[in-house]
Computed example of a mutant assay.
Amino acid sequence: MDNVTDCGAEFDREHIDSGGTRMWKNKSVGDSQIFDCTPPDAWQPSRLVKERSAMIALLEQGGPTDERGWLNLAWRLPAGLRSALIKELAAGNWIVSISDTGWPHPGSVVVTMRGRFHANRRAPPQGVSWRAVNVPHYWREELSENIGDTEFLLIT
């Protein structure tokens, strides 16, 4: 089984035409889903903007399914945190990875962003809290939202 998938945003959910270069790597193990995203170095800035816009459109239009994939994990984020993710993508940030490994709680989804937060630091969406962690070995800052006892995170 091929453990690398095309990105999935521009043309459909999980299989984006990325010019023959694959962008999302499936690093899932057992029940844990882990997807790393690395845009091809050869992409021009306009291509990255187009891809980011397509990802935003998919995040705005859908909902979770039984499928496995980066997009399904993103749809599992609570509404406020998903809104924060969309704002970050729109501000030029990029997803590095998305996972549901059972940390920090069973059912949690954690999204790691490439750069520090742009759009959400001063005014996160309702229900979302921002916190400076400033431990570069782990992460610098986080946005979190809880649903019951389950915490969902965007981290930089």
Results as ranks from 00 to 15, higher is better:
residue 66 D to K: 15
residue 82 R to I: 05
residue 122 R to V: 12
residue 84 A to Q: 04
residue 37 C to Y: 04
residue 51 E to R: 08
residue 19 G to H: 03
residue 120 N to K: 02
residue 86 I to S: 07
residue 15 H to A: 12
residue 50 K to I: 12
residue 130 W to V: 09
residue 29 V to P: 06
residue 119 A to M: 06
residue 33 Q to G: 01
residue 45 P to A: 03
residue 92 G to P: 02
residue 90 A to F: 08
residue 81 L to D: 02
residue 24 W to Q: 07
residue 156 T to R: 14
residue 78 P to S: 06
residue 149 D to S: 13
residue 11 F to N: 15
residue 73 L to R: 01
residue 49 V to F: 11
residue 20 G to C: 04
residue 82 R to H: 05
residue 113 M to Q: 00
residue 100 D to R: 10
residue 145 E to T: 02
residue 134 N to W: 14
residue 9 A to I: 11
residue 34 I to S: 01
residue 100 D to K: 09
residue 55 M to P: 04
residue 88 E to W: 04
residue 9 A to M: 11
residue 48 L to Y: 05
residue 71 L to P: 04
residue 14 E to K: 11
residue 28 S to D: 03
residue 139 W to M: 10
residue 123 A to N: 14
residue 68 R to V: 10
residue 135 V to R: 12
residue 151 E to P: 06
residue 129 S to W: 15
residue 143 L to N: 01
residue 72 N to G: 05
residue 147 I to M: 12
residue 10 E to D: 14
residue 42 A to T: 14
residue 123 A to L: 09
residue 155 I to D: 00
residue 80 G to R: 07
residue 135 V to L: 14
residue 111 V to Q: 00
residue 142 E to I: 09
residue 17 D to K: 06
residue 132 A to D: 15
residue 24 W to I: 11
residue 49 V to G: 10
residue 92 G to Y: 03
residue 93 N to C: 07
residue 143 L to S: 02
residue 25 K to P: 06
residue 125 P to E: 02
residue 25 K to R: 13
residue 5 T to K: 13
residue 141 E to V: 02
